[in-house]
Amino acid sequence: MSDKIIQEDELEDFQLSADEAIDNLFVEDGIFDDESKEDTPVEKTGGFWDHDTDSPEKEDQAANKSKGLPFVGDMSLNDRLARLQEYILSLDWEVTTTNIFKLMNEFKIIKKLTSDDRNINTIIVMAIGILDYIKDVKTSAKPVALQFIHQASESLVTLGKDDKLSPKDIKTLMVKIISSYTKLPLDVKKYSKIIIKKKAKQATVSQQTVQSPSAEIPVAESRGEGLAVKLLMEKIERIEVDFKKIEQEQGNTLKGMQENMDAISERLKILEENTPEKISYESQPEINSTDETISMAELSEPLSRPYHLTQYPCLLLTMKNLQLNLILLLIFFKYLTKK
């Protein structure tokens, strides 16, 4: 997998496609007349002001009516969808209550406009649900949520096209968006995990840049308590899995070490005190992200330390246990030879 968002060999094609898109998109609206250009109201006081200067309802009225499409407030479905995309773009830039409500309201108008279309209504119900989540958490909303709103809008545009889609296409589209919706909570959870992991990595890398690479750094100290606990719990889970694997391979030789979560936790604490570098976050398994871009971002970060055995604390525990067993065996042999 490459760590570049644009590949070198596709640069020229990318630039040509961009040029073409710019030529097609950045054109003056056909319904724009000279008269309306002159009377652009400009807010003249301080603070944030929206230039809601356009009035598509009036401008598009004649053109829309000729299409024979459903109307609400003299606007056709296509115009409403165009406005919806405009509001999404605004929400993209700034997550504010006003932007959320504008978008929510637009979704509701489209729902009313297409009350007989079950597919469109399903998408809108899902989108409003996600908007509710964004409204509650505002700027903390995970990008996957806004991605879903984009997907919902694109799907609505596809469904709202004048030329009707085939039932098969509609089914594919609906399956895709419903599956995105159902896996959204999981994606949000996964994204949160990745964020925590990236922050922990950054903290580790920044520490290593100011200290000698060979220095033994108690990484856990640098993190917040909550994060440390979380990392520890993840480690415990990982070790538990490893122990089970080893146990399956080697029988019950490690059974004594695998009593319960608390006991392992205690052992880890002791291990952490003695050899702090061994629980550094680099020993965490990679989160298998289906989001390619996140993985690419992680790949672009420099490797913080070379691979070595201490990356696997469970093996160290095993080795310690073996050492102990050897010592016991030696004592036992000495005891036998004395006899």
Partner: peptide
């Protein structure tokens, strides 16, 4: 802002004018 197609533009914001 006035002349662009609505699917290409967001809202225009003027800060402190």
């Amino acid at each position: 802002h006035k002349a662009l197609k609505s699917n290409a533009k967001g809202k225009m914001v003027s800060i402190d004018t």
